[in-house]
Amino acid sequence: MTTLTAKGAASEPAAPAQETAQPKTPLGSRLAALTGHWAVRFALVVIGLFWLLPTAGLLSSSLRDPAEISISGWWNIFDLNGSFPWILDRDQLTWSNYDALFANDQVMGSLWTTVLITVPATVLVVVIGALAGYAFAWMDFPGRDWWFMVVVGLLVVPVQVALVPVAKLFNTLGIFETTAGVVLFHTAFGLPFAIFLLRNFFAEIPRELLEAARLDGAGELRLFTRVIMPLGGPAIASLGIFQFLWVWNDMLVALIFADSTNPPITVALQQQMRQFGNNIDVLAPGAFISMLVPLVVFFAFQRQFVSGVMAGAVK
């Protein structure tokens, strides 16, 4: 019976259409389900390939000789004249772009700048956000709910609103076009989400744990560092990864607030881009290097990243 069904399904691509006509028979549905399966798999493979190709193109371009890039497409790294499982044409591949990139102090310096911006901005957001989140979750003060509502309201404020005013403010403070300014800006715009996420998380920590600690004579700070932070691990991880990627990948804020002589990688590459085509040999490997860290983080911490993204669904 089963085999029969399978055969029928295979030989009848029109089954999905037919099923509409005879929806009452479970057999019809099964047929449709089986065909669906086969077609679905095929569709998914094609879509997956489609999703992969652009990135593959960047990687391939970054490994080709600049002269070759300018006259032929990245797919020429495969010997397309051969039979189907195309083999890689090793003559097309070279590390020279990467060698040049690593020798390029400007680009390497900008990578370092990115690190110098991203790490403090992430740490600050986590720490300050956790402090505030704890206060919102477990402390009493006048207008607490009202304050928290303000924070939630700030979740969706577009960064663009702050560009002009903060540029002026930073100018006054003398931190315009400095790494510190970029860090502060990112911290500010990461905070609402951080507070929102961590407060909700901390609020679920069992009260008795806090009570027990208090009975043991722990102060609020101790409570925070010894109980709240350790228990908040998962949420802090999500937040940290999310914020890290956010800042690492930012270009707009850095474009305005970063030191333009020593900008983070995104801005450096953007500057390179002005004469696109002539310097794809710098852009392609540069973009790929700049993607590496986020991709590693992404694959290493998918779960936390996903939950961070989900929590950020309001952002």
Binding site: F141, F189, F224
Partner: peptide, 19 residues
């Protein structure tokens, strides 16, 4: 509570609300 909130409120106030 004020102490715990202070850094966040300062930064948010200066760089988000004020703008």
């Amino acid at each position: 509570a004020g102490l715990f909130l202070l850094p966040a409120l300062l930064i948010l106030g200066a760089l988000v609300v004020y703008p």
